[in-house]
Design a binder for these strands. Structure first.
Length: 268
DNA sequence: CAAACTCCCTGTTAGC
DNA sequence: TGCTAACAGGGAGTTT
């Protein structure tokens, strides 16, 4: 389940392999993966453009392309099971490859996605995607004070706020649970009542956990996300196992229609 | 306006 | 053993 760390790991992995290369053609194998184009217009618009940048914003992979004064942006969301790889053109397609983008140099960028939830948008205006996204938790310019304002402006449960991409971009179900456990905050606690001390600790926890996970190439749940994901969750997926802090049994509840794992004893 | 569904998908797993 | 049904999950869209 790619969240910020897995997406960052993917960006880091493909960046050097595709930067500077031009699109020589595309093949869309599952048309719904391309959200705002027909396979034909997708190919027509991309072909001839050169990849100038590969970045991450929230859980989006943001590929900037241009040719002369023409600039386009390819946004890719891996959703549940998406992954990217760069392989030789001669490599046979895999079972769940949805898009292949052929590049100069004889290699192609392949978008594989078992569950078909992944999406990409090709647009001239990056705001189409970025306008809706909240703050980047790893942005060094995001202060504890500002984070406190942003969080406590919501009356929803803190877990739900962390999952809301319009408030904070990049945190998903796994790292929301992990950050709350580290901060000793109950996932059902109203965001509005959190103290400055708690939100400060929460921001620190989010940053530490995300950075750790990026270093370890994300979390591998056998969902074919990023090869070699080595992050080991403290609570996520550990229902009834013992808390690493106090040995109590980790509980699983539903918050905001998402399975939520926490320690009933340390997370007051 | 916000909370709560529903839908999109398919591999995995629990249950019979 | 082999089958079916439930389940997981991010985000868009719809309903309450």
């Amino acid at each position: 389940m790619p969240e910020l760390p897995e997406v960052q790991a993917t960006v880091d992995y493909i960046k050097d392999k595709v930067l500077g290369r031009s699109v020589t053609g595309t093949k869309v194998l599952w048309h719904r993966t391309v959200a705002n184009h027909t396979p034909r217009s997708f190919s027509q618009e991309l072909t001839g453009l050169r990849i100038a940048s590969v970045e991450r914003r929230g859980k989006w992979i943001w590929i900037g392309l241009n040719h002369k004064s023409l600039t386009k942006h390819l946004f890719i969301h891996l959703r549940m099971s998406g992954s990217l790889d760069v392989v030789k053109d001669s490599e046979p397609l895999l079972d769940h490859d949805r898009i292949t983008i052929n590049l100069s140099g004889g290699e192609s960028l392949r978008f594989n996605d078992v569950r078909k939830f992944g999406r990409c948008y090709l647009t001239a205006d990056p705001e189409l995607i970025t306008a809706k996204l909240g703050v980047e938790p790893l942005d060094a310019l995001l202060s504890a004070r500002r984070f406190h304002e942003i969080i406590t402006a919501n009356r929803a449960k803190i877990k739900q706020v962390l999952l809301n991409q319009e408030i904070i971009a990049g945190i998903g179900n796994i790292y929301a649970d992990e950050a709350l456990w580290r901060s000793r905050i109950h996932p059902s606690r109203s965001a509005m009542v959190l103290t400055e001390q708690q939100t400060k600790l929460l921001l620190q926890s989010i940053r530490i956990i995300l950075k750790q996970a990026i270093t370890l190439s994300g979390t591998d749940f056998g969902d074919n996300v990023v090869e070699g994901g080595n992050y080991r969750p403290k609570v996520y997926g550990r229902t009834e196992e013992s808390c690493h802090r106090c040995k109590s049994a980790i509980q699983r509840i539903i918050v905001a229609q998402r399975s939520t794992h926490f320690c009933p004893s340390c997370q007051g």
